[in-house]
Write a protein that binds this DNA or RNA. Structure first.
Lengths: 228, 228
DNA sequence: CTGCATCCACTTTGATACTG
DNA sequence: CAGTATCAAAGTGGATGCAG
């Protein structure tokens, strides 16, 4: 690991934080991922070897802890790690205000989006009774058009294949529109109004859906500073 | 420049901010450096070519502006650039709390320290009449033992050679002690008490000196979280 | 001296395949 | 699932050169 050779605390923090992928790995840990595979799902383009290395660096820096229960290995932030939250949050805010000028086509990824949304639904405590929400996504890769969120009392699952259960609500959406709603760039109502998203199901469920969905965890509805 | 291929704003900000040296270049711009050479003095280990590249990236990202008046080229942050301040500040705070466990010998650099302090004295509006403060630094590299701050009404100069003027105050200090006081790890009074720093000059001037000196700009006296 | 551009050795990263 | 191994590609550091 390279250093900056300066006593400045900004340099010290940079040595840890400003290596490639590091903020995204931390974002995953802060958003509740604990396992290697969970982190990898949130940062799909990182190579396994590099993720291993980054996690080791975090442990070495006293920012994360690795716990092995048999073959069940989990990672968790230490207090020092949680104090990095303001930095990651500030990075999210800045990106939201200044860098969201049209997501490139390559960056619109249905799997990542669904995994992101699944994560947010957990704290939201979605349903009293089991609920199945189907997503049909247009305008994305042909292999990634259908997802199911199966919400039960204590668990929530993202399925990539039909779980063969009754669907309570079906969300038909353009990938771009769903991403923009998730990122807080547009409201669900706008997207429904112009037809880029449709909510098919009982009116009660459909109207509560946007509330469930919430939006991206580290962004508290941060407004954009650039005209859209 | 590599990207992360994610629509997450944290990823977007990382693409800009989490390249090597970038936070330090931004720190320099935020602390008032405007010229290539000034930035380089604050980040002495970056190579000129890489600094050029980083500055171009900042301009391209709309975070800095390059202004050429004849051969006088200056850089300044745009509004988008200034909004990165909370991130850099939070990085400084975290480093101050968690990463200052003993500066390595290699990181104690008298020139960098003096350049840092000179920068801080400008906003402090040091003196009514011209004042010369001499620094004699022990425990550092043999070539970097003497510095002079020449403070005049509108200008403040850091001299590496004797300016041949009457010295109003002489600061004799261990490099480590002066660095620690500057970083807010210790108070000047403590260092004076244990003899690692001596202030030689008229009592009035000597007593006002710690106030002039202030401490590191992005650190508002942030306390350490690790026992020293 | 400032503000770069270029070249080359070295390190880090990416992509893929493989293991307990 | 949680990594390890491998090798090509890309990024970085450092020296040098050069024009104004």
């Amino acid at each position: 690991m390279p250093t900056y050779g300066q006593f400045c605390p900004v340099a010290k923090t940079s040595e840890l934080l400003c290596e490639r992928w590091m903020p995204l790995v931390l974002r995953e840990l802060m958003c509740g991922s604990a396992r290697f595979g969970e982190i990898q799902r949130g940062v799909p383009l990182i190579s396994p070897g590099l993720l291993t290395k980054r996690l080791r660096q975090l442990v070495l820096a006293g920012v994360a802890e690795r716990t092995a229960n048999g073959r069940d290995i989990t990672y968790a932030l230490t207090p020092a790690g949680w104090e990095l939250y303001p930095i990651i949050e500030a990075m999210g805010v800045w990106g939201q205000r200044w860098a969201r000028s049209r997501y490139g086509v390559d960056e619109l990824d249905p799997s990542l989006l669904m995994w992101d949304m699944r994560r947010m639904l957990v704290p939201a405590g979605l349903a009293e009774r089991p609920t199945v929400v189907e997503f049909r996504i247009r305008g994305g890769p042909p292999r990634k058009t259908r997802y199911w969120l199966v919400v039960e009392e204590n668990a929530i699952d993202l399925c990539l294949v039909d779980p063969q259960r009754d669907v309570d609500l079906c969300v038909e959406a353009e990938l771009r529109a769903l991403t923009e709603v998730w990122m807080g760039d547009r409201t669900m109502a706008e997207a429904v109004a112009d037809g880029t998203i449709s909510l098919l199901g009982p009116p009660g469920l459909a109207s509560r859906f946007p509330v469930w969905l919430g939006c991206h965890p580290v962004l508290g509805g941060v407004p954009s500073a650039v005209p859209t």
